[in-house]
Design a protein around this nucleic acid. Structure first.
Lengths: 330, 330
DNA sequence: CCCATTGACATTAACGTTAATGTTTGATAA
DNA sequence: TTATCAAACATTAACGTTAATGTCAATGGG
């Protein structure tokens, strides 16, 4: 059994009667190393099974080639899809992806410590950062981008979708399909984009001549969606728009269990169009969001920021266009 | 604006007229530091906003407080659930979680490079490692554990479920519910646990007096599950057991679209009981696997291995008990 | 009263890599 | 010919932390 000792630059250097620095520069294809030397170094490194020590490199360079993703719950197809897209985009660029959890819907400064201490190059978050978090990140020169939760009061680059417009279309659709009384089940009241969807939905209904009473616009609490559904049914609601597809699926499932026919008796719609990336056994009416476009822009923005550090710019808030997808539930 | 400069141990030390080493030891509550000094250091560190540099610490200590998870596709509720459980367990222990992708169902030595070079403390993989991978990990003293894909020919600790027994129960159930001709849609032929499930399923049917012809035991290719379903239907199959719940959901969905009634005309069953952790709008008949138990054991095993490095032991292959969950699809 | 002990801190070096700077050799231009 | 320059490598130090070792004064025992 060979001795378990990692091959280092200096081991290659000694074998070739060079210095560690020369080997390092040769492997990184720097211009002041001779072509034959480079070739020889590459060959020897490969033979000796050299694997670079990213930790040492990170310490010296101050960049870890790592990106942090922060969400509140991994068990959520939306986050999963986004994480997958992020990972796929970063891997070929030799960036590793770390996952972190927020706490009660926020990225607080406390959860930030393990992230900052690991010197990640950037952060993609699906949770609103607190002010303290942003200060800390600014102090540590770590770029961040917020995806899906635009909040103009936060001084942070954000990318999301046209929540209002998408929800507006659902509202119009419900009415055009004959819905007399519409209902909405949203995310907790603190989630701004849920508010926007609610407003758009309401306006869409009104503009189409439909009705929706404010008591039928609900915020989910404690994940007890069944209570919301039953409450809406008591109000004789005949269409339910949900904050996202997963909630819509739950609602659909609950209605099925009650023997209520969808869409004949109650129409259901969601938001996100998970079906594009994910197996969903129901052809839900939903709003397609350009997830690829969002992630592409998010990652590209971060990469740009990583390169040109310290240049704090005015935060940009970008909203991607959405598209109505009519399924079998309306 | 304050100068953007991270606070280091030496900054705290200078402020208190101590050395960096003393500060380091004080913060880590070592015994050779006076109690008042410790208190003072902690207070000062907090005031100055000190955040430890894990990179530097990792380089010195040779351990990065990071675990790598490797799967082939993030967009899969099973992996997602497992990743979530792993993350939840590791976070309180100050371990970070990195995600990596394999390639065509394997963890090859090529995909290993970014993992090894980042000096992760251990690896949890859902993909079979190649021999070369195992050699490389052994050389680099990185413990690994394989979850869900036990393969006795691989010299690697593995944790999985009693595939044969679970599938056996499904076979028995199908026959007892009146199925005359059973079918199976498995994972690609290279996946050993799919083979085990097939065997158990077959035996369960036979032992119950049912029939299953070998042409109705299929391996999925290229994700074209619809072809498998249609092929089985042509053979007048009246029950379909799928490798996992997601495939079962797809099959269910396809049957629905064809107007075939489940379970009256065709019964469907899966494996994993995703419904325990994940919103699924269908109450699928499935096999519950003790995911919590599996992850608990996997992580605990790894943590033990991290502490007692270099002690290569005989690989252990553990299979957790399973439990039949009867849903509405049988 | 002297030596051994110990508590509390300091000093030094090392982890592996890389940026900044230095050195040597040979070729080129004046 | 000689100063100039560039190519190709070497030397040095630094990134921030921590293990190993060293120092020193106060304490206790005989």
């Amino acid at each position: 059994m060979t001795v378990k000792k990692n091959v280092r630059l200096i081991d290659i250097a000694q074998r070739l009667d060079l210095t560690a620095n020369t080997v390092s520069r040769a492997l990184r294809d720097k211009s002041d190393i001779g072509e034959e030397t480079k070739e020889l170094v590459r060959k020897t490194a490969s033979e000796m099974g050299y694997i670079p020590n990213t930790i040492a490199s990170s310490l010296r360079k101050g960049s870890s080639k790592t990106i942090a993703i922060v969400f509140d719950n991994l068990i959520n197809p939306y986050f999963m899809i986004m994480a997958d897209k992020i990972h796929r985009k970063l891997e070929p660029l030799n960036y590793a992806t770390m996952i972190f959890a927020g706490s009660n819907g926020r990225l607080g400064s406390k959860q930030l410590i393990p992230i900052v201490s690991r010197k990640v190059d950037a952060i993609i978050t699906f949770l609103e950062p607190t002010k303290k978090t942003l200060e800390l990140l600014n102090k540590n020169d770590i770029p961040i981008i917020l995806v899906g939760r635009v909040n103009q009061s936060l001084k942070v680059d954000s990318i999301s979708t046209k929540d209002y417009e998408g929800a507006y279309q659902i509202g119009k659709l419900f009415v055009s399909k004959g819905s007399k009384e519409c209902g909405y089940i949203g995310a907790p009241i603190s989630v701004e984009c849920s508010q926007r969807r609610m407003s758009g939905f309401k306006q869409g209904i009104i503009d189409s001549g439909g009705t929706v009473s404010d008591q039928n616009l609900r915020y989910m609490n404690d994940e007890l969606i069944i209570e919301d559904v039953e409450c809406l049914l008591k109000q004789n609601v005949d269409s339910i728009f949900c904050f996202n597809d997963m909630m819509a699926l739950e609602v659909y499932s609950l209605l099925q269990n009650k023997g209520i026919k969808v869409p004949e008796e109650v129409k259901v719609a969601g938001f996100d169009n998970l079906r594009k990336e994910f197996t969903i056994p129901i052809n839900l009416t939903t709003i397609d969001t350009d997830k690829d476009g969002i992630i592409d822009l998010a990652v590209d923005t971060l990469l740009t920021k990583i390169k040109s550090k310290s240049e704090l710019s005015i935060p940009r808030y970008i909203n991607f266009d959405v598209q109505l997808i009519e399924g079998d539930t309306t």
